[in-house]
Amino acid sequence: MKKKVFRRMLIGFLSGAAVGNLIALLSSSGSGMIYSPMLLERFGSPAAAILVQSLLSALIGVAGMGGMSLYDETDLPLAAATSIHFVIVEAVFVAVALFLRWMRSAAEIGIMSAMMFAAFAAIWVIMFIIHKREVRQLNEIAKEKENIKKKGETDK
């Protein structure tokens, strides 16, 4: 279990760092500057700014991917697992986004949080539908088994 969680966190770390820098690049409006001037000012060199940005972006990936283990490695009910995952990812994301100046106003944070909430609600709905279908299949198999059993008793 621990190995699986660690592997997910590692994947999250790498993909988070990559995606964070990619988003920064895409939002640089063609200037090619993938870090904010604030980071450069604060950490002294472009390399340090990119390193800090990469590490913090990686944290979001770790929270997102590592948190997936809440769904299949714990006995938490689906609603609890989804809620805890959302709170972890949201908290890490907001903290990192504020530090890296991806978001500056309360409105931006609000919009981003609402989008994230919608994404997690969608995850919950999809997983709920999948489990509901699996449980319906359980009832069908149980009914089939019961019918076979009854038929067997009649044949005896």
Binding site: P77, L78, A79, T82, M127, H131, V135, N139
Partner: peptide
Amino acid sequence: KAVHFDFSIAGQL
């Protein structure tokens, strides 16, 4: 002895 299975809104069997 199981009679019926369902999936609760909280997400438990």
